[in-house]
Design a protein around this nucleic acid. Structure first.
Length: 447
RNA sequence: UCCUCGGUAGCUCAAUCGGCAGAGCAUCCGGCUGUUAACCGGGUGGUUGUUGGUUCGAAUCCAACCCGAGGAGCCA
């Protein structure tokens, strides 16, 4: 029995005889010479089958291999600059092979396909090189998120997915039946996070969240993952410092650990290398002025056909606005102090100017939009109850939340970072559906 | 909910003014010792999204519906 190794470890086994277990990605048959591209989940490696080097049975088996057939292939690892693969530069000079199964005709070819077809075959599409690379980067982003928070004094306290009422509005909730009582799939764990900081100081929750928005764009999913850190004794400025450290760490971890994956994705690395503290910060007032100067000059929005639309002070930004602002910077940019009226009820108004609140969105470069939204939370009972009234929300639902301000209230802040938008940005992915294994998008949840 | 675009072979797409349903890839057969989405020769493969209408004749024109994509709004 030969040593079984992973393709990723091939460079450590040059001139040794090893066995790879995997699937045939594609094949080039040259008569007495066959090139097999073998995947094993860790990479793709070229296995070269010379007729004179193997038994006639093994050679015939190789000829019969179809795309995605499962196999064990044994041979000597050779360093060869001509060898393609991930990582390339090494190939297997085959001495023997065993077919596990000859696969049926495989629907996905290593060429262009339409979106509908690929989504319908998502269970197979995840084997393709691009999808494989994206999902590996996603796993790195998740590790980086947990590592940074765990190493910086945050305690992971997860929050419920079944909730009795909306945190921020009711139109985008998935309703389910909780034994005769209506319940909703969580859109955020933030309110519970705020309870948790009074026990643990700095906490985060990290899990799936659900939005029944009728949104059908490349930036929306019905089910997506969000990490939500929440910090006691922290104001808006403190929050932005944490966010820029956190996001920079995530990006740098991907650069360090996923060079091969980013190469498969043909991602421009230099724009990611710039992602380091500190990030530019602009006030909502400045952003409005910037947008209206651009609108007056008739500038167009990168990636859109339309010109920059004029904006009235007090309105929230639309996607074209966000995209234009983000395009003015070569790093993620903070926009802070949004108008109080367009933001959620719990955001702390600026004491000297209550028309704006201590909120901040982080906009990713290259058109990937808002990857994070956060704020300093209202710390006083009276302000909070006024805020709940002003938004027309049922006071009774928030009794425990208001309670938190009665027992040792402090300035506190938090944000939510959208996992898929972050991964899409790092990978340069065209659509969020590519950065989660089984996307839930409007009108489709199969497979 | 609204706007725009689309649906033809397993996949990606052609089909001129309404006039024989056509390629490439995949698959199958044959050839080839350095291929990178190989190449060369041959074969298989069709209820043109659905229903109805106009017409001698419809993939093509008309109507309704179904499905998909991108975007707006909303949001991470």
């Amino acid at each position: 029995m030969n040593k079984r190794i992973a393709i990723r470890q091939m460079s450590a086994h040059v001139e040794q005889e090893v066995t790879l277990e995997g699937w045939l990605y594609t094949k080039t048959d040259k008569g007495r010479l066959q090139f097999l591209q073998v995947r094993d989940g860790t990479g793709i490696c070229q296995a070269v089958v010379f007729k004179k080097n193997v038994s006639s049975e093994a050679f015939d088996h190789a000829r019969k291999l179809t795309q995605e057939s499962s196999l064990r292939v044994t041979g000597t690892v050779k360093a060869d600059a001509r060898a393609p693969g991930t990582p390339g530069g090494y190939e297997l000079d085959v001495t023997d092979m065993e077919v596990v199964q000859i696969a049926d005709e495989y629907p996905i070819q290593p060429k262009e396909h339409g979106v509908e077809f690929l989504i319908r075959n998502r269970h197979l599409w995840i084997r393709s090189a691009r999808q494989w690379a994206v999902l590996r980067v996603r796993a790195t982003v998740i590790r980086a998120i947990r590592d940074w928070l765990d190493d910086n004094g945050f305690l992971n306290v997860d929050t419920p997915i079944l909730t009795p009422n909306a945190a921020e509005g009711t139109t985008t909730l998935f309703e389910i039946d909780f034994h005769g009582e209506p319940a909703y799939l969580a859109q955020t764990g933030q309110l519970y996070n705020e309870a948790n900081i009074f026990a643990f100081g700095k906490v985060y929750c990290f899990g799936p969240t659900f939005r029944a928005e009728k949104s059908k764009t490349r930036r929306h999913l019905q089910e997506f993952w969000m990490v939500e850190p929440e910090i006691a004794f922290c104001d808006l400025n403190g929050l932005m410092e944490i966010e820029e450290q956190f996001v920079s760490y995530i990006v740098q971890r991907c650069l360090a650990e996923n060079a091969e994956e980013l190469k498969v994705l043909e991602r421009n690395i230099s724009s990611l290398e710039r992602v380091a503290p500190s990030f530019p910060r602009i006030h909502y007032d400045e952003a409005v002025a910037l947008l209206n100067r651009a609108a007056a000059a008739g500038e167009s929005v990168p990636g859109y056909e339309d010109k920059v639309p004029h904006i009235e002070w007090g309105d929230d930004f639309g996607s074209p606005h966000e995209t234009y602002i983000a395009a003015q910077f070569d790093k993620p940019v903070f926009v802070h102090h949004y108008p109080t009226q367009v933001k959620a009820f719990y955001m702390e108004p600026e004491p000297d100017r209550p028309q704006v609140c201590r909120s901040v969105d982080l906009l990713a470069p290259e058109g990937y939009g808002e990857i994070s939204g956060g704020s300093e939370r209202m710390a006083e009972v009276d302000k909070l109850t006024a805020g709940i009234k002003a938004h027309g929300l049922p006071m009774a639902s928030y009794d425990w939340y208001i309670d938190l301000r009665r027992y040792g209230t402090v300035a506190h802040s938090g944000f939510g970072l959208g996992l898929e938008r972050t991964v899409a940005w790092i990978c340069g992915a065209a659509h969020l559906r590519e950065v989660i294994a089984f996307p839930r998008i409007l009108g489709s949840m199969r497979p």
